[in-house]
Amino acid sequence: MLRELRPAIVVFIGLMLITGLAYPLAMTGMAQALFPRQANGSLIEKDGTVIGSSLIGQQFSSDRYFHGRPSATLGPDPADSSKSVAQPYNAANSMGSNLGPTSKALIERVQGDVNTLKAENPGMAVPIDLVTTTASGLDPHISPDAAIFQVPRVAKARGMPDNRVRDLVSQHVEGRLFGFLGEPRVNVLALNLALDGGAPK
């Protein structure tokens, strides 16, 4: 057994240096050279300040913006940092709701959200992604239906004709890759940026 001790130590240290330092550092260098935007988090800047990442959802509550999906992420309580409170779209603490299919808390929360949305737009069935929690708490997307659903509210808040907002949504629908991979979706932050910018991207 002692005869195997030297190889054990040397091989472990050798592989640790190769896979734990050389490999991630070399990859960081190459990634920064080849894909600097993605390597740093696909950040979006506006007037010199970072306003978010194109891959990370953010919390929208104003009627003037399209809203993302419910997020169950937590953050430290400002009053007592040892406790956690709801802080949707906290991108430094990703998580889902982890509520199961027979959870009373889940069903009641969804019921409440459905009622609110039905009041907002009685003319259309409530899209399920708009009332269910994202897995990461940071989903940047909603389904095209979920965007269309919100058109009347956003158009009214902005004093824009429904058609113009709807066109903007259509321009932001991303389809399936190669026609079969993934699901059709709309990036909420990109859509809201386009709304603010006045002109589509």
Binding site: T49, G52, S53, Q59, F60, S61, A91, L193
Partner: peptide
């Protein structure tokens, strides 16, 4: 991402702070 840089502080469209 592949960076050794620190977490990014963003100011969201609605003006909230988001640490990424």
């Amino acid at each position: 991402p592949q960076t050794l840089g620190a977490y990014v502080d963003a100011t969201t469209l609605e003006g909230a702070k988001q640490s990424i």
